[in-house]
Nucleic acid binder design. Structure first.
Ligand SMILES: [Zn+2]
Ligand SMILES: [Zn+2]
Ligand SMILES: [Zn+2]
Ligand SMILES: [Zn+2]
Lengths: 137, 137
DNA sequence: CCTCATATCTATAGTCGCTGGAGTGTTTAG
DNA sequence: CTAAACACTCCAGCGACTATAGATATGAGG
């Protein structure tokens, strides 16, 4: 039997976040002590660790909810789980691509260094005028 | 004299967003028509284009507020503007680095494809156990 | 058993940067 | 003059937490 604090310490998930996950339906409402405090079993510790890891990998709450539901049925085919992970990977790649474009533009923009005034500042001028950029973003 | 709709069309910033920027102090409250509708000058069109471009480059509202304030003083040195841009570039690079790590892990995780069940699914097992990962994230 | 520090409870509001809707009033072209 | 298009304010919602406030519970030492 773990208290919410035990769970928090063991998984690194903050206490309000655990309660939030309960509200969001990722964790079932656990049993309560006589004084109405949450008491967890090992199952829920593992479930929370799963959630934590999936969040660290950037999966959305919704995706995690689906994955948890799938994991309750070990005999079913896993196409759906693979699809969720594959789609997430694609989303991560898109984000990287977008950020790389920003990186390129920002590098050009901050390349102006030295002693000068706001009036001459390339940063300010570049922000005022997208046509100075080399790509869309 | 532009209406809020003109401004929106010319900058690509949605009308509620323009009002939001006014609330956030990025744009001064403009003059109003007799019927209480916003009426903008060219100055504000340029200011909004600046904001839009800075947002497209990922700068925060707060950073943009500072940059706009700086741009009112063309005679001052531009160290602060350069600093804001440089810090933002660093933040973008950090995000990219983080996402690249996720990309690597996710690639490994989704590499399991084929005919199998949830019980054997590498996606599910990898999410349940961070020690199967090659890096921290 | 009592006290007290610590832990936990609920409910609510705030974060960021918008976005959308309801319900009402204004402007403009025909 | 009418009707369409436009704009107004206020408020709620997104996602994934995080942080308060004020009340109650738990557990260890005396
Ligand atoms: Zn400069
Ligand atoms: Zn640009
Ligand atoms: Zn699989
Ligand atoms: Zn991992």
């Amino acid at each position: 039997m773990y208290s919410i604090g035990d769970l928090s310490r063991r998984t690194g998930v903050k206490i309000p976040t655990i309660r939030y996950y309960e509200q969001m339906g990722l964790i079932e409402a656990p049993e309560r002590s006589e004084g109405n405090q949450r008491r967890y079993e090992k199952r829920e510790l593992e479930r929370l660790a799963f959630i934590r890891h999936a969040r660290d990998l950037g999966l959305s709450i919704e995706a995690i909810r689906d994955l948890l539901a799938l994991s309750e049925h070990p005999e079913r085919p896993c196409g759906e789980a693979d699809r969720i992970a594959t789609e997430h990977l694609a989303a991560v790649r898109e984000k990287i691509a977008r950020l790389r474009k920003l990186e390129v533009e920002l590098e050009r923009i901050v390349a102006c260094h030295g002693d000068h005034t706001i009036g001459d500042c390339y940063v300010i001028r570049a922000l005022a005028d997208h046509s100075m950029c080399e790509s869309e973003h």
